[in-house]
Simulated scan of single mutants.
Amino acid sequence: MAGGNTLLRRLSRQDRSEVNNVVKYLLFGFNSFIWLIGVGLICVGAWAAVQKNNINNITMLTNSIVDPVTLLIVSGVIIFIIGFFGCIGALRENIPLLIAYVVLLVIVLLLLVALAIIAFAFKSWLKKLIVETSLKDVIPKYRDDPDLKNLIDWVQEDWLHCCGLQDYNDWELNIYFNCSSPGMDACGVPYSCCIPDPNAAMINLQCGQNKRRPNEPNSDIYKQGCIDAGDAWFNTYIIPIAGVVVGVAVLMILGICCSWNLVADVKAQKAKWDKVPFERF
């Protein structure tokens, strides 16, 4: 029994308070919230996908990167994985999960910095890329997917007050608004391009018809393209946008530092326990 008492005394002298519980549970709580956000995005995206299946609206747009449902699900999965690694890694003091969490945060942080540099330093190239991609994937497929349609209508009508990408004539690329179309929307624009009438009791869904025909009055629609309108909005709110980006980056850097500190604490604690010699009772 003397040997056992000696071992117990040695164990009792070990520093069991080395792992910082404040950092541990702060990481756990924060990443639990992030994890729930990821789960919520996945659930909403899955529900939207099921709804599209139910009303037979799955089209070739489903596999496109501009599909809002796809973007929602992918974003949710990424956030879920990051939150899961941080949450479980902190709670269980699991070094591999914490390291994976740090690596993911570093990757996302680098992507955020790269996007910020591109947005500020290569604005012209980015605008050209958006125009080329959107003219191919967004305008022609406006009515192929209700989620994309609602997003475009919101951008044009409620957010930027614009029409098309470069200007309202971009809607010629859509088969429904093409001037050679036999439909009633030929040579027109979506209703979201119309300037709202404050005296109207209801939205006129046919207000954009024939607005691109020669000699047709079109003073009641937005002429500016959404690219230029978005650029103007960005320049107007550049300080708040930069503040949000910096705030997100600071939170990520704090997460990286706290996680790495927790990894170091766990390693130090394990090293101390590994030094305790085995003795027979």
Results as ranks from 00 to 15, higher is better:
1 M>E: 08
4 G>M: 10
9 R>H: 09
11 L>R: 13
14 Q>W: 02
14 Q>P: 10
14 Q>G: 06
16 R>F: 08
17 S>F: 12
17 S>I: 01
17 S>T: 07
18 E>M: 15
19 V>L: 13
20 N>F: 09
20 N>M: 14
25 Y>C: 11
25 Y>H: 13
26 L>C: 11
27 L>S: 02
27 L>A: 05
30 F>R: 06
31 N>Q: 04
32 S>L: 13
33 F>I: 15
34 I>C: 06
38 G>Q: 03
39 V>Y: 05
40 G>F: 08
45 G>Q: 10
47 W>Q: 08
48 A>H: 07
48 A>P: 04
53 N>F: 13
54 N>Y: 08
56 N>W: 04
60 M>E: 12
67 D>K: 05
68 P>C: 08
68 P>K: 09
69 V>L: 10
74 V>E: 01
74 V>G: 01
75 S>A: 07
79 I>S: 03
81 I>P: 14
87 C>W: 07
88 I>G: 02
89 G>N: 08
89 G>Q: 02
92 R>V: 12
92 R>F: 00
93 E>L: 08
93 E>Q: 13
103 V>Y: 03
104 L>I: 02
105 L>T: 05
105 L>Y: 05
107 I>R: 10
108 V>K: 03
116 A>K: 07
117 I>V: 10
118 I>W: 10
119 A>D: 00
119 A>H: 02
119 A>I: 03
121 A>C: 15
124 S>T: 11
127 K>V: 14
129 L>V: 15
131 V>N: 08
134 S>Y: 13
134 S>Q: 14
140 P>C: 03
143 R>T: 10
144 D>A: 12
146 P>T: 03
148 L>C: 03
150 N>W: 02
150 N>Q: 09
151 L>C: 11
151 L>H: 03
152 I>Q: 05
153 D>H: 11
154 W>V: 15
158 D>Y: 06
159 W>S: 10
159 W>Q: 09
159 W>G: 04
161 H>C: 08
164 G>N: 06
168 Y>H: 11
170 D>T: 08
174 N>C: 09
178 N>L: 07
181 S>V: 00
182 P>H: 04
182 P>D: 00
184 M>Q: 10
185 D>M: 14
185 D>K: 14
186 A>W: 02
186 A>I: 00
187 C>I: 01
188 G>T: 05
192 S>Q: 04
194 C>G: 07
196 P>V: 04
198 P>H: 04
201 A>K: 11
201 A>N: 09
202 M>W: 10
204 N>M: 11
205 L>H: 01
205 L>V: 13
205 L>G: 05
206 Q>C: 05
206 Q>A: 11
208 G>Q: 01
211 K>E: 04
212 R>H: 06
218 N>M: 06
218 N>K: 07
221 I>T: 03
225 G>L: 09
227 I>T: 02
228 D>K: 13
229 A>F: 00
232 A>I: 15
234 F>P: 13
237 Y>D: 00
238 I>M: 09
242 A>Q: 06
242 A>W: 06
243 G>P: 05
243 G>V: 06
245 V>H: 02
249 A>Y: 06
251 L>D: 00
253 I>C: 14
256 I>W: 00
258 C>I: 01
259 S>M: 06
261 N>Q: 09
262 L>P: 11
262 L>W: 07
263 V>P: 05
266 V>A: 07
269 Q>K: 12
270 K>G: 04
273 W>R: 15
273 W>S: 13
273 W>E: 14
276 V>R: 06
277 P>A: 02
278 F>S: 02
278 F>W: 07
279 E>Q: 14
280 R>S: 10
281 F>P: 15
281 F>E: 14
